[in-house]
Design a protein around this nucleic acid. Structure first.
Lengths: 342, 342
DNA sequence: AAGAAGAGTGTAAGCGCTTACAAATTTAGC
DNA sequence: GCTAAATTTGTAAGCGCTTACACTCTTCTT
């Protein structure tokens, strides 16, 4: 298998009997190219199996043909799913997907968002998944020249898609409240700051609002940081029971956190809903199996939708004037981990 | 925030009072650069915040500074974990990580491996995760000019790291056999072919060998294709019970498949180990919770190890002469989903 | 002390593509 | 049927970097 002797735009030009300039334009679908030329070029290109060199295009002022997906972590269920869905859309549109995981690490977060130039050098656009950004970072990103789209963020000057996290949390909490539980704990995502997940904040708000609407106060002891992993949920739940106190019901920031909580309960010989009711958000594949009540959200849809938004943004000529925010539905799924308070 | 006026190698050259050629060499650590020059350049570069344009480097015959991770799917637990671990290594070494998910789809597999030129245009090397490759594909890849490293493949002309899948399956099967079960079923990964996962084949071999060593034959009805997802496991288990027959024990190709099987059992009012013993491979975080016996394997380690192998390969001057294959340990973890046959 | 060998540096020619701008061709207008 | 305008095509100058190759100094040789 000999080293393929790269076929360049010159070869296509030669074969089609046109200049490389015309070929370049034809290939990119620019106006001012006759149909005849268009066809000749297309013909020659396929015949030669021509593929433009992305490096050369980029250098000459074009684009990189790749986009970055930035996720707080790549292993959590939500992100793995969203990433795969987005990657599919990008791949089908001919974009390379550069994966950047912040690994829930503030220093990585700062490194990535502190050097947008480096980023904009390698990709045309970025897809942000639930990233908590400071105002300065938002502004920097908006004026970086990069196309941007996101999942689960709001009040951002670019297209976004997500669920209404506050509302979902509010509904989940109300479900608990409706079952007669008023002594509620929340296994929350990390507190705001670099490296955190934006949805966590919203969900905490929803939780607080639901309680407030019922004239209930939030016991600080019952708000525990659990991140969004199984491990974190387990740790948080253990902390809650051993060092704080057992609530009547628990709202877990996501299903994986709830799984961890369920584990912790079992460690201590307890279980849901017997000793405590528990509800999550996500509708992870395992939730049905574990009988976990949850607020279902469409994950792959969000990833794919946002990816399409980004691609549109990439193709739009001018800068984005009116960023749109799309909200997808969530749905309460009652299972056996929650039941009426006795 | 104004559009950053790109700082080029020229600026560095000017500031350091040297020629761009010397700067280029100094920056890349090539020989024949005096220490003084080295320092001056480093100084000017940091002062200016200079970052080489990957497009230009690439075009000028250099490298892309990015590597691809190719996985059969990005959502399965094993791959999500391995991808994140590898991405971390790459990021820390300054490489961009391009994620390519084959989505368990043969056509995507063919598209990716059928056009290695396109690939080698965008990345310097590829990290293959458990990809089942034909001999022709292996050869094409080996002579593509790309650096290659892999997880879970064997007899490949590049560095590889993995567990001994056949051995792990053999041990898992023997665990079942040792408990007195001789009527065994396997929930296997997909059969060989484009888009399949190579470990599945090995595990099936290990299963068969263990049975053969005990003079047992494999009932074709008890070999069912389950892919490597929860959904697949559930489907396969349902198929097994409803349309074939209930074995005494089951070896699931991976933990997620086992989870699915557990779900299917419960759908039918059955459970493990009461009605059937079941063992998986992975030691997924949920396995402990579900009491699933399994063969534990180090996933993040494999991803990180392979990533380092790839980076070494990228830095090695000549072509690889003696590909090394590293085997990591697995360990039987007995939990309550398997028990002695009564 | 003169010449060979080396080390360090600079010059200039691209890599394959995009993009003003100029040139050539077609179409429209009167 | 001839000019003005519109359309299509070609020319050439880079994009920022690498890399032969030429060149200038230092060191050793003998």
């Amino acid at each position: 298998m000999a080293k393929a002797p790269r076929v360049t735009i010159q070869d296509v030009a030669a074969l089609s009997g046109l200049s490389i300039c015309t070929v370049s334009r034809a290939l990119r679908g620019l106006p001012n190219v006759s149909e005849t030329a268009q066809l000749k070029v297309a013909d020659a290109a396929t015949k030669l199996g021509y593929k433009a060199s992305s490096a050369a295009s980029r250098l000459a002022g074009g684009t990189t043909g790749s986009v970055a997906i930035i996720a707080p972590t790549a292993t959590a269920w939500f992100f793995a799913k969203a990433v795969e869905a987005a990657e599919e859309v990008f791949a089908d549109s001919g974009f390379d997907t550069v994966l950047i995981s912040l690994r829930n690490t503030p220093s990585v977060h700062r490194k990535v968002f502190g050097d947008l130039d480096a980023l904009s050098q390698r990709v045309d656009g970025v897809l942000l998944l639930n990233i908590a950004l400071s105002d300065a970072e938002v502004e920097a990103l908006a004026s970086s020249g990069l196309a941007v789209a996101s999942v689960g963020m709001h009040n951002v000057p670019w297209d976004n898609v997500g669920i209404d996290n506050e509302d979902a949390a509010w509904k989940a909490t109300n479900h608990l409240l409706g079952l007669g539980h008023w002594d509620l704990a929340i296994l929350s995502g990390r507190e705001p700051g670099a490296g955190s997940v934006v949805t966590a904040t919203d969900r905490l708000h929803g939780f607080r609002r639901a309680l407030a609407e019922h004239d209930l106060t939030v016991d600080p002891d019952l708000v525990v940081d659990a991140g969004s992993s199984i491990e974190g949920g387990r740790r948080a739940m253990t902390e809650l029971i051993e060092n704080r106190r057992m609530p009547s019901a628990i709202f877990a920031g996501c299903d994986e956190t709830a799984f961890g909580a369920l584990m912790a309960l079992r460690d201590l010989g307890l279980s849901a809903p017997k000793n405590v009711s528990i509800i999550g958000i996500d509708d992870h594949q395992m939730s049905w199996f574990l009988g976990l009540s949850t607020m279902a959200q469409p994950v792959a849809d969000q990833g794919a939708f946002a990816a399409n938004l980004l691609i549109e943004g990439l193709q739009r000529p001018g800068p984005l004037t009116a960023p749109a925010s799309h909200v997808l539905d969530t749905k309460l799924i009652e299972r056996k981990s929650t039941r009426r308070k006795r």
